[in-house]
Amino acid sequence: MNMESAISPPMNPFVIHPAVIKEKRQEAPEIVTFRLQLEDPAIRKQFRFEPGQFNMVYAFGVGEVAISIVSDPDHPRELDHTIRIVGRTTDVIGRMQPGDRLGIRGPFGKGWPMEEAKGSDILIVTGGLGCAPVVGAIEYIFRRRENYGMMNILHGVKAPHDLLYRERFDAWRAHPRTHVWLTSDEPGKTWHYHVGVVTELFDRVQFDPNHTFVMMCGPEIMMRVASHLLSQRGLTPDRMYVSLERHMACGIGLCGHCQLGPYFICKDGPVMRLDRILPWLGKSGI
């Protein structure tokens, strides 16, 4: 074996680039947002991404995890990642402090159709705990509010305590032409929003199916049911997009882990147009 540094980093998609933690924000007990800056000025300068794309984020000596980029693509020199601490690697990452280094490979995958959706109303449907992949799209729209129409954000959780950070929804609610709808499958003492599954909210939301783009993220079964109901309301599958999650080890279509039917979610997704993925969505055991 020979040490080979002649291969320049962009040619070797496995090379991990150190990034310094500029800021750390505790969003909730188990959720942190890091603002990262790639150390190498050349890499930093060429880094471009779209909302919905992800990086492989690396903790030295531990491993890599796939994490969505939630910051704005017009400021690619700083990268925000909101990470939920769920296991071995995210646990180590969660303990890092400003000044510490994480590693980055990316950006990988396909993002949301922000250009195509320009001028349309937007319906965001999310379920479950995280849903980081849509956060980048939502923030993107709010920074360019005049380019998009009505904004409806629907978010469902299993139980009230699963609503991980309420403040963010309150902040979104404050934007013009924006409605935020929350629901919980189970009731709770302090829960004064809807009780029931997220798809029940569709009856309350006004939208024109011909001028709406849907962006969804959450359990595949939920997205399947939601897309069915939305189709009944006149939305065509080519205006509905979903973000998918699979086990990921490489991020570049080589390791085989992230497959869903004929797709590699790391390179054909994670954001996919519904009509391409519908036959596979929520199918058990795949």
């Binding site: 020979n2 080979e4 540094s5 291969i7 496995f14 991990i16 150190p18 310094v20 280094r101």
Partner: peptide, 12 residues
């Protein structure tokens, strides 16, 4: 010192 360096190891 504070950061790390990643070096690819290509096969012979």
């Amino acid at each position: 010192h504070k950061t790390f360096v990643a070096t690819p190891i290509l096969p012979d």
